[in-house]
Design a protein around this nucleic acid. Structure first.
Lengths: 231, 231
DNA sequence: GGAAACCTTGAGATAACCTTGAGATTTCAC
DNA sequence: GTGAAATCTCAAGGTTATCTCAAGGTTTCC
């Protein structure tokens, strides 16, 4: 989260400096500041920030105008800064697609809290990597990382693996696995499941005929032996 | 997970009905709805829900007030429902100890996903582990934990042990045990059952010929002596 | 002391699972 | 749309851990 890019758009130099120091102190490493809407658009055209903090009151292109331009090309989360008394602004801002607003003057902690909440919502933790004996499996990318190369998982392989990883170490019955693939009526699907298991093993095991990660528990089901629990 | 109690607090009847049907359809069996904070507190005093879904905007005691009261006595997870535009609410809610929020209007699936995520986080799946004299038996992994090593159970051994653990301390007849292994017609299977019992004892007893956990009750059946009840 | 109930061991039978290939189906690019 | 490629499904034959059962031994109880 701390490496998310924060773009600050404000014409007041003091405020830019203050906001930068708030995030610097909190450990954020990518804080970009610009003084106008035009500069902001130029920057967005080249790079993609994780969140934009936007002052409503600016000479030239104001916050609303900028927000509109941004929304025309991107869904990046936006936090608006409004002056006290501009109660209307928050509604106007929300209508245009702002994610939140903050009334000036604000406490540093307040700004931090809001930005963190927005980031948490907009970028739900995604780094589900399962460590196995021979490979890593990246669930979010549906890829197996094997000796530097990336091997994609198919839809069914992914579903099976996800179910097994969810219950890492525990036995998952053939019934449950079939159900996740084809719903309630799964009788007769066992043989197909087996084929998928085989293919999965060919991707995640050193020797698919002598599995050490995706284990068979005869008569009960399958289980996944992981080296580190899924985070 | 589906038997976790869900308490819905909302003054709008339509919303209560809608939320109830969402969870009913998803298979949840314990959905309680109340129309006010006062009712909610009265209910919490008597029973303990697994999660509380709370509308912020309510006449009388509002969501924040209720949340504060709840947090004074309990750490039960809380999901807040806020109306669009009440941006302040999220932060106030988080500060007071809400676990998540959801902006109205929302999609049924959205609510389900959030609640499931919270429940999963708050109540991590625990393995069913039976403690015996010499070993631990992990039912979810079908493994015996003996001096640090893990010994797998076969399907039949597992079924027998599960049945005995279900009736820990009580006598389970040979007939019942045979039935769980091979169905209604089990006459003549007693000798085979004995073999499985033997194998099981070799895995869970210090001395399989002098059992202290899986005991024979001559003429009646078998019983399992556990040190701690199955959790 | 004797019968009934249960234990112990080993070896063959078997059900559960593996493996491979080929046809059906879906997906994707053009 | 159309064709190619990827993916899914299913069947047939092979493999193996597990299950079954019998034969002989031991304990328990009357």
């Amino acid at each position: 989260m701390l490496d998310k890019e924060i773009l600050v758009v404000d014409d007041e130099k003091d405020l830019r400096t203050m906001i930068r120091s708030i995030f610097d102190n909190a450990g954020y490493t990518q804080v970009w500041t610009v003084a106008s809407g035009e500069e902001a658009l130029a920057l967005i055209a080249k790079k993609t920030p994780g969140i934009i903090i936007l002052d409503v009151m600016m000479p030239g292109m104001d916050g609303f105008g900028l927000l509109q331009e941004i929304r025309a090309v991107s869904k990046v989360p936006v936090l608006m800064l409004t002056a006290k008394g501009e109660a209307e602004d928050r509604f106007a801002g929300f209508e245009l697609g702002a994610d939140d607003y903050l009334v000036k003057p604000f406490l540093p902690k307040e700004l931090l809290l809001r930005v963190q909440a927005i980031l948490k919502r907009a970028y739900p933790e995604k780094d589900r990597i399962v460590k196995l004996d021979a490979v890593l499996v990246d669930l979010d990318r549906a890829e197996v990382l094997k000796e530097g190369q990336r091997i994609p998982l198919t839809a069914k392989e992914y579903s099976i693996f996800e179910k097994l990883a969810e219950n890492a170490g525990r036995i998952v019955t053939i019934g449950i696995l079939c159900q996740t693939l084809c719903g309630e009526i799964w009788q007769g699907y066992e043989t197909t499941l087996m084929t998928h298991i085989r293919h999965l093993r060919e991707k995640i095991e050193e020797n698919p005929s002598k599995p050490v990660s995706l284990l068979t528990v005869k008569g009960l089901g399958y289980k996944l032996r992981v080296k580190e629990p899924e985070k």
